[in-house]
């Protein structure tokens, strides 16, 4: 009886997608779930956002691919992944057995390629939603799709046409005005926005006087970016009416609650998984405790209540 009550107390919706709790794991930080099966009771998570998949396999960037920085890390993995076919055949079966929502992160270069992937994935029963990664900073291109409102609109529109699934658009913080891009995605029919992806960054080795990453630049994540991410979630919350998944340096329940209070319907743990694989589970427990202690009946009462 008690269990049922806490379940509904934490449940949230994102488009057609129902989550039993608002805690997700962020794309690229949790592989395809299987990597953490010994360490984390995966069924207790609100859902898993997979490592980004592309239509064809991608080799990724040369090493070194990561560098630790103050309160954070910079990565330039370069979307290494086995491609859509191998994902469906070898990675998805494990995920679908978990019985929790599987959000597949996809990336492509053109609206057509995005649509093709979305169409394929919308036919797969165990895929609950798609996250459009239009904000990866490590592809060696000049601009990101999510730095351009028009390009963002076009991609989201094309995917919405091709797939009946819940669509989450992942935004880059590397923009002058994130609300402009957020509005473009909303107008195009995105069911939800996730923010933020990593910040453009670099690190230098003063001994060799060379960049610490082979790719020179990468994306900064971790507690270092939390205040900026929080601000952006607040900005976007005030600008759009679709649900938001907040992320950026979330390490514990306190961080997660800050994002929810700023307007996020759900949150995702990213770099925190590397430090503590159980971070997501501990955040679910921590939020539950917070609600109880503060006599809050439902998490929805907290959302955007700044």
């Amino acid at each position: 009886m008690v269990k049922k009550k806490t379940k509904s107390r934490l449940s949230v919706s994102i488009g057609k997608l129902k989550l039993k709790n608002p805690v997700l794991v962020a794309s690229g930080t949790f592989g395809y779930g299987q990597e953490y099966k010994d360490l984390v009771p995966l069924k207790k998570l609100g859902g898993i956002i997979t490592k980004t998949i592309t239509l064809k396999p991608r080799k990724g960037n040369p090493p070194p691919r990561i560098a630790e920085t103050y309160l954070g890390m910079i990565n330039a993995i370069g979307l290494e992944n086995p491609g859509l076919e191998v994902f469906l055949k070898e990675k998805l079966p494990f995920l679908q057995k978990l019985g929790i929502p599987v959000i597949v992160s996809i990336a492509a270069e053109t609206p057509e390629e995005f649509s093709e992937m979305a169409e394929r994935l919308s036919k797969v029963k165990s895929v609950s939603a798609l996250e459009l990664n239009i904000s990866c900073p490590n592809l060696g291109k000049k601009g990101l799709i999510s730095q351009d409102a028009e390009a963002t609109y076009e991609i989201v529109r094309a995917v919405k046409k091709a797939a009946g699934l819940t669509i989450i658009t992942k935004l880059s913080p590397n923009v002058t005005d994130i609300t402009e891009i957020a509005r473009a995605a909303e107008e195009a029919g995105s069911d939800c926005l996730s923010l933020v992806n990593t910040f453009f960054a670099m690190a230098v080795d003063i001994k060799t006087r060379k960049p610490k990453l082979a790719n020179v630049t990468g994306g900064l994540s971790g507690p270092a970016i939390k205040p900026q991410a929080l601000w952006m979630v607040r900005e976007v919350y005030q600008a759009v009416s679709i649900p938001l998944i907040g992320m950026g340096g979330i390490m514990n329940a306190r961080d997660a609650l800050e994002f929810i209070i700023c307007g996020a319907n759900a949150i995702a743990v990213g770099t925190g998984n590397f430090v503590n694989p159980r971070a997501g589970i501990e955040i679910v427990e921590g939020i539950e405790r917070y609600l109880k202690e503060n006599k809050i009946k439902n998490i929805k009462e907290l959302m955007g209540k700044l």
């Binding site: 090493p63 990565n75 290494e80 694989p277």
Partner: peptide, 10 residues
């Protein structure tokens, strides 16, 4: 991560 998830140590 140390467990094969992040693909950082390639």
């Amino acid at each position: 991560c140390g467990v094969g998830a992040c693909l950082g140590c390639a």
